[in-house]
Every structure is written in C-alpha cells, then in structure tokens.
Deep mutational scan, measured.
Amino acid sequence: MQRVNMIMAESPGLITICLLGYLLSAECTVFLDHENANKILNRPKRYNSGKLEEFVQGNLERECMEEKCSFEEAREVFENTERTTEFWKQYVDGDQCESNPCLNGGSCKDDINSYECWCPFGFEGKNCELDVTCNIKNGRCEQFCKNSADNKVVCSCTEGYRLAENQKSCEPAVPFPCGRVSVSQTSKLTRAETVFPDVDYVNSTEAETILDNITQSTQSFNDFTRVVGGEDAKPGQFPWQVVLNGKVDAFCGGSIVNEKWIVTAAHCVETGVKITVVAGEHNIEETEHTEQKRNVIRIIPHHNYNAAINKYNHDIALLELDEPLVLNSYVTPICIADKEYTNIFLKFGSGYVSGWGRVFHKGRSALVLQYLRVPLVDRATCLRSTKFTIYNNMFCAGFHEGGRDSCQGDSGGPHVTEVEGTSFLTGIISWGEECAMKGKYGIYTKVSRYVNWIKEKTKLT
C-alpha cells in the first residue's frame, strides 16, 4: 500500500490518463441519441435557420407576430419608411378606419389613436360632414345658397324668414311668412316636400332668348283662358290664391305678392273693366268669414305684352289694390325667389296649380277651390304637342294621358313649387288646347323671366 501511494504521488498524470480511459469505455446513459432527441424537440425550422439574422431580410411573422416588435424591426421587413409607417399605425392600436367614419364618399386613412378623412370636392370637416359648395344638395341650405369668396357655403332665406341657429334652416321672422300653410287642420295635408338634388348652379339658368321682337298675326285659340281631375282644397291650404270678379264672377285667378299687390295673367284683364279681388276665398257660393274683398285701382301688364300681336306672350300683369290686405292664416303671400332659384325650383319637376275653373272641358265651374299636382314636361315634348308657338318664356306641365289639367277660369292662378315646406311661385296658368285632352298640356308663363320686374313694381313704400 505504501508503494502504491508513492507511485500516485510521483505520477499524477498517469492516474488522470487511467481515469479518462475508464470513462470513455463506459456506456453513456444520461444523453439520448440524435434521433430520439429530435422526437422530443420537434420544432419547425425557421426561415433563416442556421444563418445569422443580421444578414437576412426581415420576416413579418418572425419579427412582429411571434413577439412584439419595434418600429426598427418592422422597418427591416418593409425596407421602406412609408410602408412601415402605414403598417405601424394599425399594428400599434388597430384600424381606426374600420367603422368607416368618413361621410359623403370620403376616404379614410388610419393613424395612431386617430384617423384622417380625405374629402371629395365640396366637403370638409373631420368626417367630411361639412358642405362647402352650393353645387351639392344646395349646400344643405333649406332655401338659398351662395358661395363666399373663400368658396364656403353661405345660406340665406327669402323675405319674412331668418336663418336658424344651425345656419342652414329657415324659420319665420314674421307672423305670416310667405308660402307657408298655417291653418292647423290643413298642415297635415301639406304636399310632399321637395329635397334639393345635386345641381350645376353655374349652368342652372337656361341660355334662352326671349323672342321679344317676333311679330306674329293673332292666333285663334280655343278655350285658351284655361282644375280638371283635381281635388277639393281645404280652407287655408292655398292662402296665396285669390279669385278675380268682373263682368262675371271667378273669371280668373291670381296670387298675393304682398298686402297691396296681386300677380295674374295679362290676358285676364281689360282696361276700363272694374275688377274686384277676393282673398281668403274657399267656396265661392258661401260666406265663410275668411274672405277679404278689395278693388283694383291700377293694372300693370308687362311692358312687352301686346294682345294685338299675341294674347299669351309675356302673359303676366300686376294688380294694385285700393287697401292693403290683412295677412292671416287664410290670406298669405306666395314666396318669389330670384331668377336663378325660381328656375331651379321649376326644374324640380312638379308643381301645384289651383283655381275655381271648370271641372271638365266646357263644363261647370268649381264651387270649392280645386288643386292638382302636375309634372313638368320637357321642352321637346311640349313643342311636338301643339302647332302653336311655345315661346321661351312659357313652359308645359300636365299629363300625356289627359284627364287632369287646369281649365277655363283658372287662368292667372299660381303654379307653385314647394321647397322644404315653403311654396314659391314658378308659373302662372296661361293657356292650353281644350282641357285635359290626351297628348295636350297646360301652358304656363315662366315666372323666372319676370321676377325682377315683379319685385321692382310691387315694392311697398
């Protein structure tokens, strides 16, 4: 034993070699072989497995989906700052455009905790909710729209109204504003409101030439003092309507412009014939205590009207009353817009006519005020429907199939267009061939041609 100890002390290297040989010859039971080890760690190889990531292109799944990435790591994937920024906006807080917040056709661009709407022409605001041009839906104005110097929408209202708090709607500024039905039992019968379409306001006024200088022999019209197929109006439903009495009662109609003036057809009036105007009328054979009678003290036909040349060209006249009318729910003026808007309103496509005229061709006159909704007829169809001249200051309205029309005794009465609950004068009943005849239409004086003249002559002093 002493000898062994001496050998170990003198030859430590020998001992180490012996131990190493023993270990190498022993069977290893701690580690699995290569094949079995792979069965336990069965993990798919990654895209760049075996390579240094710093030297390969980034992978979106590896960089940002398996674990949260930084902007720089995302930049490695896209290799483009702009594309990385677009991805980053949604990656950080989701897609803010998912709810489609942009209105009126706006395009949404996502941002971090926010979004941006790219608005089409005519709109602005956070969600493109603000109209900035009158060309689109009248700028959301209830009545009139004008573009300011910086191309912003400025709404306005006709006389007797003021802008509401929203700067879009119009509200009454006087007790009985024009064009409004205020009798409670008839307010439910107000005709369907007309909503502004998209309009090209630059070209809204037709490029028409008034044929002022045409000389033409007097034409022989049949029954051209021209509501057939209409309905009984309720008291106060058309408070701007008046009836004219002269040699015979209810020979023509008219509309209240203001307390002192009536507008009617020029062919209705004769110099030297006494005319009485009755406002607030409903049943011409009954006294309903809503009527107001006034005498006409002055007749002003349009300066281009000449019955000797043509009885229905420039067929418009103004009547001055001896005493002002007292405005109330049964006696209310009709609204008159400017030339541009009167023309736009007419193009809405349908209007209402009213009167006490004959209820059928050569038949009896109506006792109760009649009204009828009539569609506008395109000019080409209008011209083809008659052998008589249709001037540019006239328009056609009615039904091709016949059966409904204005008729004798309705002449001078109103053709009105309702705009968001307020009625505007767009025409004056003038003439036609018979009444409600198939293929024939009622012919009306186009008020847009005469609004400046009306307003100039009827100013209240």
Rank of each mutant, 00 (worst) to 15 (best):
Q2A: 14
N5A: 14
S11G: 12
T16S: 06
C18T: 07
E27P: 02
C28V: 02
L32Q: 15
H34R: 11
E35G: 13
N36F: 09
K39D: 14
N42E: 08
N48L: 11
S49W: 05
K51G: 15
L52N: 15
E53F: 05
F55A: 15
N59M: 04
E61G: 15
E61V: 15
R62G: 04
E66L: 04
F71Y: 07
E76C: 04
V77S: 15
N80V: 08
E82M: 08
E82S: 14
T84S: 08
T84E: 10
T84Q: 09
F87Q: 15
N104L: 01
G106Y: 01
S107H: 11
D111R: 07
G125C: 00
E129K: 02
C134K: 02
C134D: 02
N147Y: 11
S148M: 07
N151F: 10
S156V: 05
C157R: 00
R162D: 07
E165D: 11
N166C: 02
N166H: 02
S169F: 06
S169P: 01
P172K: 06
P172S: 08
P177W: 01
G179H: 01
G179A: 01
G179P: 01
R180P: 02
T190R: 08
A192S: 11
T194V: 13
P197N: 05
Y201I: 13
S204M: 14
A207Q: 12
L211H: 13
T218R: 10
N222S: 12
D223W: 07
D223Q: 10
D223G: 10
F224T: 12
T225C: 05
V227Y: 10
G229S: 11
G230C: 10
K234T: 13
K234D: 10
K234M: 06
G236L: 05
F238T: 03
W240Y: 03
W240Q: 00
G246W: 05
N258Q: 02
V263E: 01
C268D: 00
K274W: 04
K274E: 12
I275L: 11
T276S: 09
E288Q: 07
T290R: 10
I299Q: 09
L319P: 00
E320Y: 03
L325G: 00
V326G: 05
Y330T: 03
V331Y: 00
C335M: 01
A337Q: 01
K339A: 14
T342F: 00
F345Q: 02
S350I: 07
S350L: 14
S350K: 12
G351P: 02
Y352R: 06
Y352L: 12
G355Q: 13
H361M: 14
H361T: 12
L367D: 12
V368K: 15
P375F: 10
R379M: 15
S385I: 12
Y391P: 15
F395W: 02
G403V: 15
S406A: 06
Q408M: 12
D410E: 14
D410R: 12
G412Q: 04
G427T: 01
G427Y: 01
I428L: 10
I429S: 15
A436P: 08
K446S: 08
S448W: 02
S448H: 09
S448R: 02
R449H: 15
V451K: 03
W453R: 00
K455Y: 05
E456A: 12
K459E: 13
